[in-house]
Design a protein around this nucleic acid. Structure first.
Length: 340
DNA sequence: TCTGTCACG
DNA sequence: ACGTACGTGACAGAC
């Protein structure tokens, strides 16, 4: 990018056609020129406007409702995907994003109930790896990112500040995805050596996680596939590639698919069981959406109490008697934002 | 049609 | 040394 060069901005990663200017790069060079934060703001607003505000109102039907299509055989991990429109990427992270989410309202006279599994992938990891240290954190009901920060940084939990917790969160999820020291360094904007220390310390504190990853990759190489806890398979032909880059991708896919795929099994079972239990109970509350670790329901306000109780019970029961237990966060409100 | 970017989990 | 976090779908611009 000629203009970037002229402004003397740092160049981080490059793609096939030039230097990247994606959100992570802009965040890292935010202080280098006053134009950078302005571009960040423009990117945020233009994305939300063109992808959601310009398009979704056109898709509302005569009953003031929007209908998505769920695809059951696209995502290679066993997740559902959602298209035309995608209701699984409705904004929520920024202030304007939350305003957009708040536009999705229950039918007048009804309410929405949102129920999401708390840290489902890390709980699955704890079980799959048999890592007691991780299991104990959940069993005690601790905040997993704070607890991880304490173990990785060697600081009392009471002294963990939001920045340390945020780094630990990055490490926790990065581990599931097979992140490298380079990748963590790039995301945390820290030296590579420091990132390597964090990862090494994490794997020392949670040694069964390291063993689980190695064993999963080894087994996948022998058999050609991995299996979720419920037994659904994904072939990983990338592991046979001669190309290093493809092969290491295969190693990350092997580990991630067991975790993400098991979480997908769980939410699908939860859909079946909550639906069946609602029908059996005679309640009129209906399942509307599934968003990977969240189920969204709509129903009469007088059913809030029993519906919430039934939904949480069924969602938790899907995973029993495994450890650590699943935890479900439930809320309700007139719109999707309030319900979260 | 490909690439980069960005929304979500 | 290698290139460097998984899974999606939608949009805009270049070709």
């Amino acid at each position: 990018m000629r203009s970037c060069y002229r402004l003397g901005l740092s160049r981080k990663r490059r793609g096939k056609t030039g230097f990247s200017t994606d959100a992570r790069v802009l965040q890292a060079i935010r202080e280098e020129h006053e134009i950078v934060p302005k571009i960040e703001r423009w990117r945020e607003l233009s994305t939300l406007i063109k992808t959601y505000l310009d398009v979704l109102p056109e898709m509302v039907d005569g009953a003031s409702r929007i209908h998505t299509t769920f695809l059951q055989a696209v995502a290679q991990t066993g997740r559902l995907s959602s298209t035309n429109p995608n209701m699984q990427n409705v904004p929520v992270r920024t202030a304007l994003g939350r305003e957009i989410r708040g536009c999705f309202e229950a039918e007048p006279g009804s309410i929405l109930i949102s129920a999401d599994y708390s840290q489902i992938e890390l709980r699955v990891l704890a079980q799959a790896a048999g890592e007691d240290a991780l299991m104990e954190i959940f069993k005690r009901g601790e905040d997993v990112h704070t607890a991880t920060a304490s173990r990785v940084f060697g600081v009392e939990e009471a002294d963990i500040d939001p920045g340390m917790r945020s780094k630990a969160k990055m490490i926790n999820y990065g581990i599931v995805y097979g992140l490298s020291d380079y990748g963590l360094a790039d995301r945390l904007n820290i030296p590579r050596e420091e990132a390597k220390e964090f990862i090494d310390t994490y794997l020392e504190r949670f040694p069964r996680v390291a063993e689980f990853m190695a064993a999963t990759i080894e087994q996948a190489k022998e058999q050609g596939y991995v299996k979720t806890i419920w037994g659904r398979r994904r072939q990983i032909p990338e592991l046979q590639a001669r190309n290093y880059q493809v092969r290491t991708l295969g190693e990350r896919l092997a580990v991630n698919t067991v975790i993400q795929g098991t979480a997908a099994d769980i939410i699908k079972l939860a859909m079946v069981h909550t639906h069946a239990a609602l029908e059996r109970s005679g309640l009129r509350t209906k399942l509307l959406l599934t968003i990977h670790d969240e189920l969204l329901f709509e129903g009469p306000p007088e059913e809030i109490g029993p519906a919430r109780e039934l939904i949480e019970r069924e969602m938790v029961a899907v995973w029993e008697p495994r450890e650590p237990p699943m935890a479900v966060d439930i809320g309700h409100g007139a719109n999707w934002l309030e319900a979260k």
